[in-house]
């Protein structure tokens, strides 16, 4: 599809509709982003904003920029955010109680004032009639951009490329962990393993009649669960000790109720509306626990 034709069609016909829809969506998403407690939710809402902005760029006769926005910004940068969130700890919820006195009030006032001033300035500005990019995009938006980029702004282009290299190097340096001890060789690792408390490999998670998942702990010969069989990161999020409820003579409803109680205890029930909304379906407990597959 010719992007220019696409842009022209949208400019004339449905532009106001698209604009208003996306405006409402993006503003709501932005507001939600700053009000969300969980960081992951905020990141996803930012993705919504970015995508709606991409559509707006397309409406504004900037198709190249629209795709770059989706690919680079939403696809790369935002994903980078999500990765770091995962590494830092996605379970850490922000308390929404403000510690600095008057910060919220003044931030709201400043924000309202700022936006009011900007809007007043913009509204009062005498803007010339929109020229449209028909002529600039005559050879296609990409060609037009390229013409500008490699002639008028070539120096900035070069500097930006240097910046990217520097950023990559900087990130490598910052994320680098200096090895304080020499890298353990295979021989040293073996030695340590045999000198440690369990030379044999750890047991893997269990596979049972009702449950089969990575977070299902294995059973020891005496009937107790083995904490060692579950990955510690997963074990931090689940109560591995109480996994095998059916082995302890409870019914499925009881097991489900215990699961729900455990979930509630793990998250803040008072403010967490999600947990209250969730219905208790028989045998389908929530919040990342098991019963995934049968």
């Amino acid at each position: 599809m010719n992007p220019t034709l696409l842009a022209e069609a949208q400019t004339h016909a449905a532009e106001p509709f698209v604009f208003w829809l996306l405006a409402i969506v993006s503003v709501s998403a932005a507001l939600g982003m700053i009000l969300m407690r969980k960081a992951v939710h905020a990141a996803l809402l930012l993705a919504v904003v970015m995508l709606s902005l991409a559509v707006l760029y397309a409406v504004l006769e900037a198709p190249f920029l629209a795709f770059v926005q989706v690919i680079v910004y939403t696809g790369a940068v935002l994903m980078l955010f999500l990765f770091v969130l995962m590494l830092v700890g996605v379970s850490s919820t922000d308390s929404l109680v403000e510690t600095i006195r008057g910060q919220r009030l003044w931030a709201a006032l400043a924000g309202l004032g700022f936006v009011g001033l900007l809007a007043a300035g913009v509204a009062g500005a005498a803007l010339p009639t929109t020229a449209g990019l028909a002529r600039a995009n005559a050879e296609g938006n990409v060609v037009g951009l390229a013409r500008l980029l490699f002639t008028k702004y070539v120096f900035a282009f070069e500097v930006a490329s240097a910046l990217l290299i520097t950023a990559a190097l900087g990130a490598m340096v910052l994320a680098h962990r200096e090895r304080l001890a020499p890298k353990a060789t295979q021989r040293a690792l073996s030695k340590a393993r045999f000198l440690g408390d369990h030379p044999t490999p750890l047991p893997g998670p269990g596979t049972y009649a009702r449950h089969n998942a990575v977070d299902m702990p294995a059973l020891l010969p005496d009937g107790t669960t083995s904490e060692l069989s579950v990955n510690p990161i997963i074990a931090r999020r689940t109560a591995t000790a109480g996994m095998h409820t059916d082995l302890e003579g409870r019914t499925e409803e009881q097991a489900a109720g215990d699961d729900i109680a455990a979930v509630r205890a793990a998250t803040d029930t008072a403010a967490d509306a999600d947990a209250q909304d969730r219905e208790v379906k028989a045998g389908v407990p929530t919040a990342g626990n098991k019963e995934a597959g049968k």
Partner: peptide
């Protein structure tokens, strides 16, 4: 779009580049 030339888009492009670099280093 208002002015009828692509300079604004070029600048937006560069902003994106810089933002990407900034995110990389900042997150590191």
């Amino acid at each position: 779009r208002m002015h009828g030339n692509l300079d604004g888009q070029i600048i937006a492009f560069f902003v994106m580049v810089v933002a990407a670099a900034e995110v990389v280093v900042g997150l590191a």
